[in-house]
Amino acid sequence: MAATQPHRAKAKESPWSVKRTQDAAALVERFGPDAVEWLDLFLADYVFAGEPLDQVMTEARRLGELPARPVRSWFNDD
């Protein structure tokens, strides 16, 4: 029977995850939470959910201690 390791090593963050967090922190630091919120809501009309820029803005909202972006129920990407 194989032995199990009670303390698994924490998975190393991907380079993309690190870069995304750095970019998001820079946005919050440079522009502040109010501008991050405005920019995120503006870009949400032009950027698909889950794309790299969307992920950066979502992280910036989190770092800026902003609430999650409101869900647009009317959105249709056809």
Rank of each mutant, 00 (worst) to 15 (best):
M57V: 07
E29G: 07
D45W: 11
A2D: 12
A26H: 13
R69N: 04
V28G: 09
V28W: 02
F31G: 15
E59T: 13
V18F: 14
E59S: 11
V56E: 10
D23V: 14
R61G: 06
R61Q: 03
E65Y: 06
M1L: 13
R20W: 07
H7N: 13
W16N: 15
L53P: 10
A26C: 05
V71D: 04
E51V: 14
D54N: 10
A24W: 06
V47F: 00
A25Y: 04
G50H: 10
D77Q: 00
L43C: 09
Y46T: 08
T4S: 09
M1N: 05
K19M: 14
R8C: 01
D54H: 06
M1K: 09
A2W: 06
F75S: 04
A2Q: 06
A26S: 09
W16F: 15
V28Q: 03
G64A: 13
E59Q: 11
R69E: 04
F48R: 08
D40W: 05
T4G: 08
D34S: 11
P15A: 12
A26K: 13
D34V: 11
P52A: 05
E51R: 14
L39P: 09
R30K: 14
S17M: 15
A49V: 02
V18E: 09
V47Y: 03
S73N: 01
W38F: 01
L63A: 01
D77T: 07
D45L: 07
S14Y: 14
G32K: 12
N76S: 00
M1V: 15
V47W: 02
N76V: 00
R20I: 05
P15M: 04
L63Y: 01
K10F: 05
K19T: 11
P52V: 06
A11H: 02
D54S: 13
R8F: 12
A24R: 06
F48C: 01
E29N: 10
G32R: 06
V47G: 05
Y46P: 00
R8T: 03
V28F: 13
P52Q: 10
H7I: 14
P67E: 02
A68E: 01
D23A: 09
A25D: 15
D77G: 01
E13K: 14
G50I: 11
T58F: 03
R30N: 13
L27Q: 02
N76Y: 12
S17F: 06
H7C: 10
F75E: 00
P33G: 07
P70S: 03
T21M: 01
Y46N: 09
A9W: 08
R61M: 07
M57C: 12
R72M: 01
F75Q: 01
E59N: 05
A24E: 12
E59F: 01
S14K: 15
Q22K: 08
F42A: 00
K19Y: 15
G50T: 07
V28R: 00
A68W: 03
W16G: 14
A11N: 07
P33H: 04
D23Q: 14
R30V: 13
